[in-house]
Design a protein around this nucleic acid. Structure first.
Lengths: 190, 190
DNA sequence: CGATTCTTTGAAAACAGTCAATCTGTGTGG
DNA sequence: CCACACAGATTGACTGTTTTCAAAGAATCG
């Protein structure tokens, strides 16, 4: 049941069978329906969520009332609002399922205790945070280097299956332009 | 000499005097002149750099030949290229001093050994990476929510001393528009 | 004080957004 | 099984923000 997560752990660190048994009681598994909320704007984020399978988005609502997607998370990614969780502040973001998903929940309140019992997890999260941080800077690199059209072409080349998986208006939001503009790009070629 | 870094450690973790002594031989201190390079595009990044004092930028050169700044690091921030370091790939980025700076160098090659001897550092880096990742996502939030002019107003309100500290063309690059446009914004008001 | 580097200004052009209308597809209830 | 409703996608005309290019004007450093 937790195997996608344990497989992911083993990609970065080594855990003994005993350690895995220690970890299990600290985790919860949960199935969320399409459009179900995991966190709503204004709530304090209390957990880190691992996507065993499915697709989750994190977004906020702009002053003009449009939804702006900040992150997508699919199979084997974690998603949370670290700002809200670390400072116990109301979140600016809403985290919502884009399709039916199975998620594994690690609650903030027991995280420190778990890390004390299994210090290797501290290392695991350090490494995946390095990756996530690098990916985020890479995204800024893309935003700044390329036009909207170029970003779309790159992205749909790099993640063709993902482009199929989510509605176009969400993709447009994630890439930083309007759904109308995406539609115009697509009509220009392929 | 290493005190800015050890003070920073103590903000997030507790280190004994013995642990501090263990750590010291793993660090190097270095003074870099204005415009001196710490990493050049094409090299493999071999260390993580802590800015004891000064200001450092990380940038790349676009196809059109303009420099695009991805990150600034000032006192008490780390800077590196995790993608290059983790995968031992040539870096896309150049890391360069923007003013004379004192930096503390933690080499990748000895990092794992150091973390084994002082596991609390693993925790320290996990926490500051959470902050850095959150800050990076927050920057994407800003890029997507606000016009260039709004981003400039927010930024110079939030970091007035920093705006004084770097040339305007670098600020423009960091905020994602041209120096000419920044000049026009400033002429409009304040 | 001379040379380079940085900033300003203006006109024309490109890129993307807005708004409103129309089209398409899909799922649900009758 | 059909009809309808609704969410999502498309299209076109118009607007606005930011870029580009070129040239001139400050500022800084040796």
């Amino acid at each position: 049941m937790f195997s996608p997560l344990f497989q992911h752990f083993q990609k970065y660190i080594s855990l003994t069978a005993e350690e895995e048994e220690i970890i299990k009681p600290y985790l919860q598994i949960s199935t969320v329906a399409n459009k179900e909320y995991i966190l709503q704007q204004g709530q304090i984020c209390q957990a880190n969520y691992f996507i065993a399978n499915g697709c989750i988005r994190k977004y906020f609502t702009t002053d003009q009332g449009t939804e702006q997607i900040i992150q997508f998370a699919i199979d084997n990614w974690w998603i949370t609002d670290y700002t809200s969780m670390d400072f116990q502040q109301p979140s600016l973001y809403t985290i919502q399922a884009v399709e039916e998903s199975v998620i594994i929940v690690l609650k903030r309140s027991i995280e420190d205790e778990l890390f004390r019992k299994v210090p290797a997890l501290e290392r695991y999260f350090r490494i995946i945070l390095q990756r996530a941080f690098a990916a985020s800077l890479n995204r800024i690199h893309y935003i700044y280097s390329f036009s909207g059209e170029e970003r779309y072409r790159h992205f749909s080349n790099a993640f063709p299956e993902f482009v199929q998986r989510v509605p176009q208006y969400m993709l447009a939001s994630y890439l930083g332009f309007t759904p109308e503009f995406l539609s115009k790009i697509r009509s220009r070629k392929g």
